[in-house]
Design a protein around this nucleic acid. Structure first.
Length: 286
DNA sequence: AAGAGGCCCTGATAGC
DNA sequence: TGCTATCAGGGCCTCT
């Protein structure tokens, strides 16, 4: 699920609904997420004000009482649901497109006066961490690379990060320490638009190719945000969808489809790179 | 030291 | 229908 655009959409929904609202109660049903939820989590946020909500790469940050914060990572299957007191979905948060609250895996419930937010995560690859101040959060994310939408994400930055890299460009795009916020879907799409073979090694990319990655990573992510992110897996009981960028996919999950480029009759190929599905056009991506 | 692969976990789906 | 195998939008850890 959640790559940068999807988390951005969640953030935007949360700003509208929970900014400057007070948390009245917290219920944790399962602490065993990717990392065990801090034993102090409930006390840490109970009766506290959510003073801001922002996003760093694929992380969602809830600022608490102007100083503290909690960091949310959605892993592969984490979703947030805003529901009213009767467990009816009040607003669809983000990329999750069911009208109903899932029945299982509702691990954490954060109550506000008139609604609550529920963290659901079947695979439990997601996690939540608490930080006493934003300085500590900065230290935690110290090794993270810039995200493509950062204004300092420019040609020089890319050159410095990719110079002498033996790593293939697909893995480079997925390496959060080099470039943050991009996941498997958008990595595939960015490389298609850039006409670069995913297996090409970083050190072999010329300036022109780096420029294409630079520009297309910004374009693809911005467009995905504009479309409300991507919703790819159909949950049961689906009934409408928020994110529609999946309709714009050029290569992701398009095995054996015709290459979308005009005058190209090649079919989209699927290979596995470091255990992740990789889709590309052999003709167009060199 | 950088890079590849294993692994954490549940659920949906394909194939027999 | 019911089993098994495979695959998912991530990233930390270990090994080489």
């Amino acid at each position: 699920m959640p790559e940068l655009p999807e988390v951005e959409i969640v953030k935007q929904s949360l700003i509208k609904t929970t900014k400057n609202k007070r948390i009245t109660d917290v219920i944790v049903r399962n602490r065993n997420l990717r990392f065990k939820l801090d034993n102090n989590f409930e006390n840490f946020i109970k009766n506290r004000l959510v003073t801001d909500i922002y996003r760093i790469a694929k992380y969602l940050v809830l600022e608490i009482d102007y100083i503290k914060c909690i960091l949310v990572h959605f892993g592969m299957s984490g979703t947030l649901h805003l529901v009213n007191d009767k467990n009816k979905l009040k607003t669809n948060l983000s990329f999750y497109h069911s009208q109903k609250l899932p029945e299982k895996h509702n691990h954490i419930e954060i109550n506000f006066k008139e609604f609550k937010i529920i963290y659901n995560d079947p695979r439990r690859f997601g996690f939540i961490k608490i930080f006493k101040n934003t300085e500590l959060l900065k230290i935690y994310l110290n090794s993270y690379g810039l995200e493509p939408l950062d204004q300092n994400f420019n040609l020089n930055y890319l050159k410095n990060k990719l110079k002498n890299r033996n790593k293939n460009v697909k893995n480079i795009l997925l390496d959060q320490k080099l470039i943050s916020g991009v996941g498997n879907i958008y990595a595939n799409e960015i490389l298609f638009y850039s006409k670069i073979n995913p297996k090409k090694r970083g050190k072999n990319l010329n300036n022109k190719e780096l420029k294409k990655i630079l520009i297309n990573s910004k374009i693809v992510l911005k467009k995905a945000i504009k479309f409300g992110g991507s919703s790819i897996k159909n949950f049961k009981n689906t009934d409408g969808s928020n994110g529609t960028y999946q309709k714009e996919f050029k290569v992701y999950d398009k095995l054996n489809s015709k290459c979308p480029n005009k005058n190209c009759k090649s079919l989209i190929k699927k290979i596995v790179i470091s255990n992740r599905s990789t889709f590309y056009c052999q003709k167009c991506q060199k």
